[in-house]
Simulated assay, not measured.
Amino acid sequence: MTALSVSVNTGHPTSPRLLRWLVRLHRPALWSWLGIVVVLSGALLWLGGPLTDASAAAWRQFNACGMGTCHYDQDSITRYKDAYNYLTYAVLVVPFAVAAWAGGSLVGREMESGTAQLAWTQGVSPTRWLATKLAAPAVLVAAGTGLLALLHHWAWSAGEGRIDTTKPWSSFETFYANGPVPVALALTGLAGGALIGLIARRSLAALVGGLCFTAFAWSATQLAMPHLWPTATSVTSLRHNGPSGAGITLSSGLLTSGGDRIADPYCGSDLSLQCKDLYTSLDAVSFYKDYHPESHFWPLQLMASGVLLVLAALLTLAVFRLLKHRTAS
């Protein structure tokens, strides 16, 4: 690995000067980010306000119809459902956009064009350059993504119990968009994109690399999240059609008289003679389910966010160490 030869000017620009330089250099990205946050925030306020009220009124009309001819505002129900789905996925996509920008523009393009090396000859040390490059965007990213997640949770809560088709808290999209995980993932994507940009030194390669890394971190979070907090176990009589307990399910099946766990043949209640004979042959006495109830929402969110923030800190440390190694003369 070849070190970058840099002759650093002995001047020491002030932090405001560095920030002004950063804003001028990335002004299009700054305005784009502010535009995204403002537009999505306005759309989420519309979703949780007028759209929710209209959809809830339409559901009241529908539920009051009984068995007769029903006249209700179906368009309001469909409009709410579509807007909720689109806005939820938009909130989840934000961390990927941050990672792509961090890799492709924030670091990768400057390394490729020589802008970074030029800054280092104008009295800006590589370490100070990188600290400014990461700190200011991190504040804006955390504030913007946090606002979107907060508004999404508010909009979802406004429809809970009022709209019959409201997504449950445990659904994949709703769960992740309703808490701080997108904020932690965006900061991880920022640090990961910066690291890949420094390694690749090419804007396009860093952009793709930042997206791939964030997708990997996102997938790993989904796999690890259910195991970051102890599960609750529900034991249900065979008189029911299956195990009870709403939430995020990890495993379920049958319990034998000896306490062993076996697979559920999905026969149903033992009120059916066929199912009763099957359970008797299996020595099954009840259903069981290991799951996370709604009370585990915040513990899971905080644990997953904590893991991502630790990863972001490690990536940031790696970026500084790599930059120091590459600029050592």
Rank of each mutant, 00 (worst) to 15 (best):
K133E: 04
T231C: 00
V307G: 06
L323A: 05
A200W: 14
C65P: 10
F320P: 02
L254E: 03
C212K: 01
L322H: 11
M225V: 04
P230I: 05
G192W: 15
G104I: 10
I199P: 02
W33E: 00
L322M: 09
D164R: 10
Y279N: 03
M225S: 06
F287P: 02
M225E: 09
Y86P: 01
T69I: 12
G42V: 12
F287N: 00
T327Q: 08
A184Q: 08
L278C: 02
W46H: 07
G189C: 11
L151F: 05
Y80L: 07
W229D: 00
A131C: 08
Q61P: 05
I248A: 00
A142P: 11
V319Y: 00
P230W: 10
W169F: 11
M67P: 03
C70H: 10
W229S: 01
L271E: 07
V38N: 01
A217S: 14
G66W: 15
E160K: 11
R60Q: 13
H26E: 05
T2G: 02
M303R: 14
Y80H: 15
V107A: 03
R79Y: 06
L106F: 11
A194C: 10
A56L: 10
H12L: 09
L322G: 04
A224H: 06
W101L: 08
I36F: 14
A57N: 07
C267S: 04
L47C: 01
T280M: 06
D290R: 05
Y288Q: 01
I199V: 15
H12C: 02
L309A: 04
W229F: 06
P226V: 03
L187R: 07
L92G: 01
S5M: 08
